[in-house]
Nucleic acid binder design. Structure first.
Length: 316
RNA sequence: GGCGCUAUAGCCAAGUGGUAAGGCAAGGGUCUGCAACACCCUUAUUCCCCGGUUCAAAUCCGGGUGGCGCCU
């Protein structure tokens, strides 16, 4: 009912290599919008080929935001993403244009549209470093036990092996004095600021997606991914960006510890697994209208489907 | 043609008389400041086939079939 007051927003989501880039740009063109990328690796400058950043041609003259906005050697987090992306959305809205979120990083997208609150300081790198030192000294079971004492709800949910989450939960408690389980509830967005239309791209036959992924890795390789990563390997001190698929699998090759073809196969495999994880993230969101691309050969057909979905959502 | 070795999941395998380890791949799931991260769960009623011995066989015996190696 008060949907009309909310900012309309289109989101194009899906696994890697499903074709989001082209669809996003086409929808932005169709509705007079601008694209906001939601990709945790395309955020970094450099890594143009490796992270499959849209080319100028693919952007088709449509403004794209949140691409190449931070140097590779800096830390970046969801909180930073939400803050910056909201600024962009507000500016686009002021010009009465439609923001089109396009990306595969589920955490970024959900945090943004579901209004999760990251404002209160609840991160402290000094404390985190100390906790990691303690983890190395006492072991993961000891850290998990410590979490169990202060916050059993979270401890039960998180395996002792999942040291990343265990440490974060302890960190939140030490910084804020609030249990992570309560912190989650407190910061949970109670509403969305947007009048949403979410479109998901996928393939009914998983093998079709995997074939696309394998092919794309070969193409990226032909287009200079290896040289791009080698240059970064030789010149940069990466922080968060060192997790990029493509980069980390090539490291053994740069160190003369593995053959290139083995590393390329590894990139394909890790990309496939990543796509699978993306799908489990997005599948649980029933706001998403899925389009299955298996037998769709003509691109405009996809856009026709999208148009119908957007019309039905009545956000515009 | 003769001799020897071998056969366990999609792949690599452990198991040599007591009721099928493990790894990889695959599938499903979790996710609130590193998320292209991290983690969790599932996956052989059966061990190439046929017969025998035994309370009990993937394991021992005989035969067959496939693979590998050597000899002629």
């Amino acid at each position: 009912m008060n949907n009309s007051k909310k900012q309309p927003l289109i989101a194009v989501v899906g696994p890697t290599a499903s074709g989001k880039t082209a669809v996003g740009a086409a929808l932005a063109k169709l509705y007079g919008g601008e694209v906001i990328s939601a990709d945790s690796m395309q955020i970094y400058s450099g890594f143009d080929i490796t992270s499959a950043k849209p080319t100028a041609e693919e952007m088709g003259g449509i403004p794209h935001h949140m691409l190449s906005i931070v140097p590779m050697n800096t830390d970046f987090s969801v909180a930073d993403y939400c803050r910056l992306a909201r600024e962009k959305i507000n500016r686009i809205a002021e010009h009465n244009r439609i923001p089109v979120i396009v990306g595969g990083t589920g955490l970024y997208i959900n945090s943004l549209i579901d209004n999760i609150n990251f404002d209160s300081t609840s991160s402290d790198s000094a404390i985190r470093e100390r906790l990691i030192t303690e983890l190395n000294a006492y072991g993961k079971e000891a850290m998990h036990k410590r979490l169990m004492e202060t916050d059993p709800e979270t401890a039960v949910m998180v395996s002792p092996n999942n040291t990343v989450r265990v440490i974060r939960a302890i960190e939140v408690f030490e910084v804020t004095g609030i249990k992570f389980s309560d912190y989650r509830v407190l910061n949970k967005g109670t509403h969305t600021d947007y009048s949403l239309c979410m479109i998901g791209l996928d393939y009914k036959d998983r093998q079709d997606l995997y074939d696309r992924i394998n092919r794309r890795v070969d193409i990226m390789s032909e287009n200079g991914m290896v040289d791009e990563c080698r240059l970064i390997f030789e010149n940069e001190q990466l922080k968060t960006a060192c997790q990029a698929i493509g980069y980390k699998e090539l490291l053994p090759y740069f160190r003369n510890e593995a053959e290139l073809s083995v590393c390329i196969d590894r990139i394909k495999q890790n990309t496939r697994r990543y796509a699978k994880r993306q799908l489990t993230w997005f599948r649980r969101d029933d706001r998403i209208n899925w389009i299955y691309l298996d037998n769709v050969i003509i691109f405009n057909k996809i856009i026709d489907y999208c148009e119908k979905i957007v019309a039905k959502s009545k956000i515009i």
